[in-house]
Design a protein around this nucleic acid. Structure first.
Length: 575
RNA sequence: CGGAGUGUAGCUCAGCUUGGCUAGAGCACUUGGUUUGGGACCAAGGGGUCGUGAGUUCGAAUCUCUCCACUCCGACCA
């Protein structure tokens, strides 16, 4: 590609709505432009990056035995109603009615459609297993799109779905996908960690997340120093805390706390620490109401809670329910006597070992001091159980080992779905004995745009992007500085490299050297060839790697061969 | 959805407090010239119904209200 003919509109100044490096650099390097909140147009160089990522994904998926298909972006809402996910996905799903009055959704994912497709074609165990995938646009009407491409409303996802006759087969494909994902991210040149994850809304029995550690990630990874354990925050269990030393706790004492409902304000008023408080949080689960007790400085982990209610859908109780159950305004729920008012009580382990605590009084504008767990409310009963119900925090351990935290960008996740979708959409087959069986499923997603953004997040400097060569918009940029012999030499190298299928950008613009260097750095092209007057007079050109400071000079005639070798070495690093 | 903020040229912003001549700067763009190894310089240009709609006023970018868009924080934490 010749720069003079290319639409690569680099800019010096950034629109003020870009905050994180990947977003800023994608705008500055002319890779993309925003159309509206959470939607972006990819310009030629940006689309090339995405295309290269998609090609790697496609090659590795095909190599694993998966087959590519393409499903519609517009799906009938009816399919989603059959699995109940029309409600579960809620407002995140963009719905619309067509001219015939039919309700549709813009695909946020495709479990329903793919299961429907498979159900129609699957008859016999002899067809199993198979794994089909697509690379397509997905639309999720996010609460709050942000961080540029990291949480956009429209994005490109590779989603694969496997179908199996038995658990062993699912396990086998799951492992194949796990390894395929490793190859994909390695070839893309992004450093990732694999963590245990909860299946969440997707359902199923097992899941791993592929996460790129980086400061601007939205996910929190919890791990032990020795690398024995890594999980996301939703999943990570914690060791039980030791029982606090018993203190001379007086009788419970009601205190007036007018208009003071939040943890912080209670602490301020009573001069206490959040860790001396018990939070009582109410959830609705089907028709039941569930109370959860956690320490004031801890957060409820809904995934753990969901496990405790056997995977049933949980929802924070509405204000009305809270008022009805506690006989008080929101902010004053407490553990004493709550057992009689709700269907279940889960006490977080950290609460169960508290010596004494402050809690809500189930009475508007009142709290209770000197609450002793086990004395003033039951820890174990028909309705009450002590469980691990909170997020891990700094200071927690697992198996006695200190838990560490770091942020990351989720770029891929694999799930064992089991029969969650196949049972509801009747995806079954006849087994060897002629008996009808429900197919087992796995699903495997990769965020294409997120690979692009995370590569930038972890690899850039003050001058711009530093691409891994396999996903760079160009592998080599040729910069002639000057306009006579330099251009001729540049053309020569350009045609030699192009002939060898090296993806090359020739900066043939009539611009000063400085401009070309700045743009080459901003765009992040891994290898740069500079052809200047002085060196050329000696028959030399200069080769510089974007990621390194120094350059080397080689004879003009050898330049193409030398660069081809460098390119192939850089690629070998990512093989 | 709650809170905060911002909307003036393609981009970054000034002007608004205290209403008043033809609405400004830098970057970008066009033309000509000089330049050409790290975002050059000179000169001449083009480009804005100041987000929308209403109101107050002799007069509104500026004051008031409506709506819209965008950004940030939060959104189960009782």
């Amino acid at each position: 590609m010749r720069y003079s003919k290319a639409l690569i509109p680099t800019v010096k100044e950034v629109p003020n709505d870009a905050e994180i490096p990947s977003h800023r650099l994608m705008i500055r390097a002319g890779l993309m432009r925003k159309l509206a909140s959470g939607t972006y147009t990819y310009l030629p160089a940006g689309w090339k990056v995405l295309s290269k990522i998609m090609n790697i994904v496609r090659q590795e998926m095909n190599k694993s035995g998966a087959q590519e298909i393409l499903m519609p972006a517009v799906q009938p809402l009816e399919l989603w109603q059959q699995t109940g996910r029309d409600v579960a996905y809620g407002e995140t799903m963009c719905k619309f009615t067509d001219r015939h009055g039919r309700e549709n959704v813009l695909a946020p994912t495709a479990e329903e459609v793919v299961t429907h497709v498979a159900a129609a074609e699957l008859n016999s165990y002899k067809q199993l297993p198979f794994n089909i995938y697509q690379i397509s646009f997905k639309f999720r009407d996010e609460f709050r799109p942000r961080f540029g491409v990291l949480r956009s409303r429209e994005f490109i996802m590779k989603d694969a779905y496997s179908f199996h006759a038995d658990a062993e087969s699912l396990e086998e494909t799951y492992q194949i996908m796990y390894n395929t994902y490793k190859s994909i991210f390695e070839r893309c040149g992004v450093k990732y960690v694999i963590v245990e994850a909860e299946a969440g809304e997707m359902g199923g029995s097992g899941s791993h997340q592929f996460t790129v550690p980086c400061e601007n990630g939205e996910d929190i990874i919890v791990y032990t120093q020795d690398g024995e354990y890594a999980a996301n925050l939703e999943k990570a269990p914690v060791d039980a805390l030791p029982k606090q030393e018993a203190v001379e706790a007086g009788e419970i004492e009601e205190v007036h706390t007018p208009n003071v409902g939040s943890i912080d304000s209670v602490c301020a008023l009573l001069k206490a620490e959040p860790k001396e408080l018990i939070k009582t949080i109410l959830y609705s689960c089907d028709d039941e109401t569930i109370a959860v007790l956690v320490r004031g400085d801890h957060d409820v982990n809904e995934e753990k809670l969901t496990q405790a209610v056997s995977g049933k859908r949980l929802e924070l109780a509405s204000e009305d329910i809270v008022k009805k159950v506690t006989n008080a305004e929101v902010g004053f729920a407490g553990p004493i006597g709550i057992e009689e008012k709700v269907d279940k009580v889960f006490v977080d382990q950290a609460v169960s070992v508290m010596a004494t605590a402050i809690a809500g009084a189930n009475k508007t504008d009142y709290h209770i001091k000197n609450v002793v767990p086990g004395r003033d409310f039951a820890l174990y009963s028909a309705k009450t159980a002590v469980i691990d119900a909170r997020n891990a925090v700094e200071g927690d351990t697992l198996d006695g080992k200190k838990l560490l935290f770091r942020r990351g960008i989720e770029v891929g996740q694999v799930f064992k779905l089991g029969t969650k979708y196949s049972s509801k959409l009747d995806c079954s087959f006849l087994d060897v004995n002629g008996k009808s069986q429900i197919a087992l499923m796995g699903c495997y997603g990769i965020g294409i745009n997120r690979i692009m953004a995370s590569a930038i997040e972890v690899s850039h400097d003050e001058n711009g992007i530093i691409w891994p060569i396999n996903i760079a918009p160009f592998e080599v940029v040729i910069v002639p500085v000057g306009k006579e012999d330099e251009n001729a030499a540049a053309e020569k190298i350009y045609s030699e490299l192009t002939e060898q299928n090296i993806d090359c950008l020739l900066d043939d613009r009539n611009a000063r050297g400085g401009v070309k260097f700045k743009d080459a750095d901003l765009l992040g092209v891994p290898v740069r060839i500079t052809i200047g007057k002085k060196s050329l007079a000696e028959g030399l050109v200069e080769i510089k790697l974007r990621r390194e400071e120094d350059s080397v000079k080689v004879p003009l005639e050898e330049a193409a061969a030398k660069v081809a070798e460098i390119v192939s070495n850089l690629k070998a690093e990512l093989a």
